[in-house]
Amino acid sequence: MSVAQPLIAMPATARSRALKDRLLVGLLGFSILLTLGILVVILGVVAVRGAGQISWTFLTQPPREGLTGGGIYPAIVGTAALVLLMTIVAVPFGVATAVYLHEYTPREGPRLAWGRYAASKGQKGRVALFRRVLSAGLATIVRSAVANLAGVPSIVFGLFGLGFFIQFVGRALDRWTQPPGEIVWGQGSLIWAAMTLALLTLPTVIVATEEALRTVPPEQREASLALGATRWETIRRIVLPASLPGILTGAILGVSRGAGEVAPILFTGAAYYLPFLPHHVTDQFMHLGYHVLILSTQSPDVDATEPLLYGTVFVLLGLTFLLNLTGVLIRSRTRARLGGR
């Protein structure tokens, strides 16, 4: 590379600034390469060593011979059932919470709302202003609770699930519905694991949905209200459809994060080994992520298990990738339908 002769000799400070600039750009480029490199190495190793393991038997047979043979069919079915149940619980609750927070609580925040209330001394309609203060306060509390929930380690969610869902809710259900001594609900099962995972994904869904609602211009809400629509009609027919791509993205992000989590299901229903499939929400289940943990720590014959391990990781990654791909496709199709917004 030839360096062009500058027309005016650069002072030393300018030269060192230019050098610093180039150095920084180099560093930024290097960090990109590093990130990409790590991704390629992980995916590459898993793909090369895992893809060969994929066979009809591997995908449709339960594990055999003490984790050294057979397949992972129960784990695939268990993961799918768990993700489905978790989605059914987390997405409606998350979307409902976000809609309430964004559409039904005051935008101005509690401090400003209080200021308005305090300034309205002796005027009519003060009660409404005070209700706004309370509502804004509630919204602030819920928002910070959601933010803190997102920061809780997933193993703590697992312990919570064990303590609350199984020991408390499950045992109570058994007391009411089962003959004495029978335990149906008060043990680890699909439903409690799904509930625990739903709690874990809830913050992602709420934050993403609120973000999506924020992108709907207020002018469209005004237009709808001015046509004689109620607030709920405006939300259902204008706001939710317009923010659907964003909501779907958030939901899928949350679900695919939840699909790979192992810690929350350790104590709430994941089984070490089950030769049969779960038939009921109170059954235990196998799970791909948990199966990876078991294969890598509990095998009696490490060499015989290793190919199975790579195969399982490959399937887990493949399923997550498929989930993300579906999300992207749904989103781009919805965008196209809405007219390129």
Binding site: P217, E219, Q220, E222, A223, A226, L227, A242, G339, R341
Partner: peptide, 14 residues
Amino acid sequence: RRVGMVFQKSNPFP
């Protein structure tokens, strides 16, 4: 519904 409104910035729904 009796008193319609048109706004400064056109705001068609998507």
